[in-house]
Simulated scan of single mutants.
Amino acid sequence: MSMHRKTITLTEQQDNWVKTQIEGGHFGNDSEYIRDLIRKDQQAKERVAVLRQALADGESSGKPKPLDISSIKAAGRKQRKAAS
């Protein structure tokens, strides 16, 4: 994987935060911390996209049906019994 150098500007408070994360042993240097933040942001965006797709699929899946709580509870009890 090729690496690209970027220059960023941080406030003093942000810079102190990054230094604290490194001094705490969470990251080896500023770049590791920034890359971790980017990875987490990418993962969060992916989770939102998956959730939105699931909502869209649900909305387009047809007319809603009434909820049968007793059958849901029975299924849950059956699963719990099978797991024990």
Rank of each mutant, 00 (worst) to 15 (best):
L10H: 02
S71G: 03
R39I: 08
T9C: 01
D68K: 05
A74S: 07
K65M: 09
L51P: 02
Q53P: 03
A74I: 04
K81S: 02
K65P: 06
Q13H: 07
T20C: 11
Q21N: 03
Q43P: 07
R47S: 14
D68P: 00
A44Y: 12
R5V: 07
E23T: 08
T9Y: 08
K65Q: 10
A54C: 06
H26N: 14
G62A: 03
P66I: 06
L37M: 13
S60H: 05
E46Q: 11
Q43F: 14
A54H: 00
K65T: 05
S61E: 04
R35N: 13
A49W: 02
D36T: 12
R47V: 13
T20P: 13
M1R: 02
S61T: 02
Q21T: 05
E32S: 14
G58L: 05
R5I: 01
G28M: 05
G24D: 02
E23Y: 08
Y33H: 13
G76R: 10
Q13W: 09
H26F: 10
K63D: 04
N16D: 09
L10T: 04
I34S: 09
D41V: 14
S70H: 06
H4E: 08
K65R: 06
S60W: 13
K81Q: 12
I22A: 03
M3I: 15
R47G: 08
F27S: 00
I8H: 00
S84T: 04
S70A: 10
P64I: 05
I38C: 13
K78G: 02
L67K: 02
T7F: 05
V48N: 11
R39G: 10
A74T: 01
A83M: 07
D30M: 14
V50E: 09
D30H: 14
M1H: 12
W17V: 10
L10S: 00
Q14H: 03
G25C: 12
R80H: 06
D15Y: 09
V48Y: 11
K6P: 00
Q42K: 15
R47Y: 11
G62T: 01
K65G: 04
L55T: 00
Q79N: 07
D15I: 03
D68A: 03
A54L: 05
G25L: 05
G28L: 11
S84M: 11
K65S: 01
T9I: 13
R35C: 11
D57C: 02
K45S: 15
A56E: 00
S84H: 06
A74Y: 01
D15M: 05
W17Q: 10
R52L: 07
K19P: 03
D57E: 00
K73Q: 03
K45V: 15
A54E: 06
S70I: 04
R35I: 12
A44L: 12
D15A: 06
D30Q: 15
Q21V: 03
T20Y: 11
F27L: 01
L67C: 00
G25H: 09
K73H: 10
H26G: 14
V48G: 09
I8A: 06
K81G: 03
K45N: 15
S2N: 15
D36A: 15
L10P: 02
S2Y: 15
K40P: 10
W17A: 13
G28T: 12
A54K: 05
V50W: 01
K73G: 06
K63F: 08
L37K: 14
S61V: 07
M1E: 10
S70N: 12
E32Y: 10
V48R: 11
A75S: 08
